Amino acid sequence: MLLLPNERQIVTANDDKIILTNQLIQLNDKSSGNSYQITMFLENISSFEKRYISYPFLLILSVLAILFGAATYINGAGGDREESPFIIVGGIILLIIWFFTKKHIIKIKSDGGSSLDFVISKMSDELVEDFLYKVSVAKLNRVANLNILAEVS
């Protein structure tokens, strides 16, 4: 990333896909064979959203299928007993799907522009909180500097 005049990098996150400087925040990512870049000046940030997405119905279905399959195997007779391993395997597959569809997402919204959305990978909750804190401090400093420049003009 080329830095603007008087710009300095503060921190990177999410495997260097997100770059925070004292003037802007930038996301560089690839998705489904497409690459994209979103840049947002810090003074335009209006809000942060940290969201955990999960599909609890998959977890409930998987547990029910495993329990039903186990109960059918223990209490069943004949054909019911033969089908129970398939039900248990189906429940395990649903459990695996549930596990791999869980996501932590951060959305940084701008005043009237697009939002900067990214899935948090390899970042603990403490690192996410620290990153959002650094974005907040950088925004406050940027707005303060712009206000000083406006007063001088």
Rank of each mutant, 00 (worst) to 15 (best):
G69L: 03
G112V: 01
V119G: 10
L94V: 02
I93W: 01
E43A: 07
K17R: 15
L42H: 04
L61T: 04
Y36P: 06
L146P: 08
I120H: 07
A71T: 09
D16Q: 13
I93T: 03
G33S: 02
T101R: 08
V152M: 14
N75H: 09
L95A: 08
A138L: 03
H104F: 06
T12C: 11
S121K: 15
V135P: 00
V135T: 00
L95S: 07
F68Q: 04
T12G: 07
T39M: 13
V11C: 12
N6I: 10
A150R: 13
W98Q: 05
L58G: 07
D15E: 15
E49C: 00
A70I: 14
N145K: 15
D111C: 02
L146I: 12
K134H: 08
G76I: 00
V152F: 11
G78Q: 01
G113W: 09
F57G: 02
G91A: 02
I96Q: 00
T12R: 15
A77K: 11
I45G: 01
F48M: 01
I19N: 14
R81V: 02
Y36R: 04
N75T: 03
L64A: 11
L61D: 06
S115W: 05
A65V: 05
I10D: 06
L95V: 00
E43V: 03
M1N: 10
E43M: 03
F68I: 08
V152R: 14
I120Y: 09
G78I: 00
Q26K: 11
F48K: 02
A144V: 09
F99K: 04
S124A: 05
